[in-house]
Amino acid sequence: MGEGSEGAGTTGGYGRRRACAVAATGALATLALALGVAYGPELWGFFADGDAVRAWADAQGPLAPVAMGALVVAQIVIAVLPGEPVELAAGYLFGFWEGTAVCLAGGMVGTLVVTVLVRALGMRVVRAFFSAEQLEGVSWLRDSARFELLMFVVFLIPGTPKDVLTYVAGLTSCRWWRIAAIATVGRIPSVVTSTLAAGFASRGDWVAAGATLAATLALVGAGAAAYAAVRRREAARQGRPR
Rank of each mutant, 00 (worst) to 15 (best):
R187L: 02
A120N: 06
P65M: 04
C103Y: 08
G99D: 07
A183Q: 09
G7F: 14
E98A: 13
G2R: 15
G95D: 05
F130C: 00
F155S: 04
P65A: 04
G122T: 00
T212P: 03
D205C: 02
A105I: 14
V72C: 11
L150F: 11
G26Y: 03
R127H: 13
V22M: 14
G99L: 04
V126W: 14
Q60H: 14
A101Y: 12
A55Y: 07
E133W: 08
L141W: 13
F152R: 05
K162C: 00
A169H: 08
A59M: 04
L33D: 15
A67H: 03
T193Y: 15
R18T: 07
W176S: 14
Q238E: 09
A226D: 09
F147N: 08
T30A: 15
P189R: 00
A132Y: 05
E3L: 14
A229L: 11
V86C: 09
A225R: 14
I157W: 13
L171F: 07
E133C: 08
W140E: 08
E3I: 06
A198K: 00
I182R: 03
Y227Q: 03
S144T: 08
L117M: 05
L150P: 01
A198M: 10
T184R: 02
R232F: 03
G9W: 15
G137M: 01
M123F: 12
E98I: 07
A226S: 03
V125Q: 11
F200G: 03
E98K: 12
L196T: 00
V153P: 02
V207L: 07
D49I: 00
W206N: 12
R233G: 05
T212C: 12
W97R: 06
F46Y: 11
G204I: 05
L93Y: 01
R175M: 01
A181W: 01
G13K: 11
A32E: 05
V102T: 05
T193L: 15
V153D: 11
L150I: 02
G91L: 10
S173Q: 07
R146F: 08
A169K: 12
M151R: 02
L219M: 09
A198E: 01
A8Q: 10
C174I: 09
D205M: 03
P158C: 05
L35W: 08
R18V: 12
A218F: 08
C103P: 06
L63H: 11
F96P: 10
L150W: 01
A215E: 11
A90S: 06
L165V: 09
A201Q: 00
G122M: 06
D163K: 09
A8K: 10
W44C: 07
R231K: 15
G110T: 01
L196G: 06
L117A: 10
A218C: 05
G2L: 15
V154H: 14
V22D: 15
V109K: 13
L33Q: 14
L112D: 06
V53K: 14
G186L: 02
V116I: 05
F155N: 01
R231T: 04
V164L: 11
E136Q: 08
W97K: 04
S144M: 09
